[in-house]
Nucleic acid binder design. Structure first.
Lengths: 337, 337
DNA sequence: CCCTGGCACTCGATTGTCCCGAGTGCCAAG
DNA sequence: CTTGGCACTCGGGACAATCGAGTGCCAGGG
């Protein structure tokens, strides 16, 4: 039914359409790729492919264009991820190595990815929930006001100003700090609630109200900020692609954290690439776009995800190569810092 | 030369063009605005206005369109900033009041402004240089590694991980923390270099190398981060405006921190609105756009600026009203927190 | 002196028509 | 199963005609 030659034809159609952005006809195919058969034969194959929904013709007397299903088959079975050139690898490395803190790592990564793929790059901040507490700091600001700072092993810092029920002296601050750190140091963020459940009971009556307030803020921070921050870059590349229709929708989607969350949300194996094509996307405004995502993390835990959004008609092998490479390098950087 | 009636005509042209987005002719003007004169008279006035460069006709037999110079005159002398409605004010207030930290204030502000004006909003983070140190914190992470946290009176937090030349114990950390806070508390950030110049001399030989390292990082942070962070929102509104040409340039400009810096950069009095129209913009890609900016700050110091970017053909009175109002409210929020 | 109505003119946009060519589907022969 | 031939379809570009909004100018009137 779908023999090898038909697959070869489909591959050729995808490749040509991606590079020319014009519906591709049987003659052009026969010329450009040496398939060893005549245009007429190709026409027959095309008819079969269309019958099965892999390609589609915009109007009679036009060439064929791959459907989402066609791209899917292409990605799954007909293409190989294309590794980056040595020069590109080196560029990534030096560019990312210059980053001094988490913010900058993320910012540089997203720009890098956008530039590399000439599309829109999306990067999620390393997850709080999957990282561990490295340190808790309590900074007195006034008698009844402190700043609470949570530092994680991924270099992320969360801070909140807290108003306390009682005034509190430096010595008690030091004590609470010591207690909190003893309880939480190295603790996975998702385990924090368990770890601190009985903490107030172990404290003096004097310390208890303050501790309760602090703990509730800590827990709140962990929950509220569970919605992870996501940034994007390269919107200008959208305008270059001939996105005439729907550009507005795409821009809107990019500014909606929720939509981005859902885009990235799917869990996949680390170093496994996820490709979402056209109508496979969870959001209506993103029909017509495809999304290539990968998880990244320090060591072997997946901390967060990043990806690239572009027209359905994108160069999948190259894009996938770039995403995979960048994800790996970011992981290395995070592990090394 | 430019008598009152001509100005009225210019005002009418700007208003009509802004609302219809079509070149406006003499007949339409006579109909819609009761200027008390006939179309023929208006034609004469228009000819004069064109002669002086305030308006322009795309082609013979088309209506007139304001030039940048025309808009400039309109903004300077013919329009009044339009205050927001009560409902809008209340919405702003409640929306901004819910923010819990600086990041969220800025994020909410930029979204609010974008939504309010249906254009692209740009907000600069409150300047480090004009704020004061509220607290310096040193957090030991490992023997020879600490995290340095700088908290400012605007709620901004800067943190850096620092590798030290020597191992350092908790007691020495506490000592250094005390010394640094004693020197820097309440100090304007721009005065920090002076304030700490002689600090190493006042320390024991043992503490000196560590202190020097820390101070150099502090100074570095102040200088490097002097390039203030700028965020924007509402890019989708660009697509709605008929920006067919140049959209790409505009998006590129928005992602270039440098360009945004220059856009916002001009100093103006606090609560003074700056309007940059079309070719008055510092960046080529932004011809065709206008920018309305205002400074904001807690109390009477200007801390940073915010603004709105839109097509030259924008509703200036309304936009200016929104920018001014938002700037004031953000100031209040910052002052109150 | 300025305003007004009239009039001829310009020119972009719209509509309709025609034609071309790329590309198809089908069929009969190899 | 492949191939060459052939009739057919249909989008897009070129061209012409028409329409109408808007202008500039001029002569007459307050």
């Amino acid at each position: 039914m779908v023999d090898d030659r038909k697959l070869a034809v489909l591959r050729a159609i995808v490749e040509d359409y991606v590079s020319t952005n014009e519906p591709v006809g049987s003659k052009a195919l026969a010329d450009r790729h040496n398939l060893g058969v005549s245009p007429a034969t190709i026409r027959n194959d095309m008819a079969a492919l269309e019958e099965q929904g892999y390609i589609h013709q915009p109007h009679t007397s036009a060439g064929r264009v791959p459907t989402d299903k066609g791209y899917r088959l292409f990605v799954d079975r007909l293409s190989q991820v294309k590794p980056l050139t040595g020069a590109e690898r080196r560029a990534i490395e030096t560019f990312l190595a210059g980053a001094i803190d988490l913010d900058e790592i993320v910012t540089r990564t997203v720009r890098l990815l956008a530039q590399l793929t000439r599309q829109v790059a999306v990067v999620q901040y390393p997850s709080l929930t999957r990282s561990t507490v490295r340190h808790v700091e309590i900074v007195p600001l006034a008698d009844r006001r402190v700043m609470l700072v949570l530092i994680t092993n991924t270099g992320r810092v969360e801070q909140r100003v807290v108003d306390l029920p009682d005034a509190i002296g430096d010595d008690r601050v030091a004590h609470l700090r010591a207690v909190l750190n003893a309880s939480l140091d190295g603790c996975g963020l998702s385990n924090v609630p368990d770890r601190v459940a009985d903490l107030p009971d172990r404290l003096s009556a004097e310390d208890r109200p303050v501790a309760v307030t602090l703990l509730s803020v800590i827990l709140e921070t962990l929950v509220e900020r569970h919605e992870e921050k996501i940034v994007f870059a390269g919107a200008a590349n959208l305008a270059a692609a001939d996105f005439s229709v729907g550009l507005r929708d795409v821009l809107e989607a990019l500014e909606e954290q929720v939509v981005l969350m859902r885009l990235l949300g799917e869990t996949g194996d680390l170093s496994e690439l996820t490709v979402r094509i056209g109508s496979e996307n969870p959001y209506t405004g993103l029909r017509g776009t495809s999304f290539v995502a990968a998880g990244y993390g320090a060591g072997d835990k997946e901390l967060a995800r990043l990806g690239v959004l572009g027209p359905t008609r994108m160069d999948y092998p190259v894009t996938m190569g770039a995403v995979r490479a960048v994800a790996r390098y970011v992981g290395q950087i995070l592990a090394g810092s």
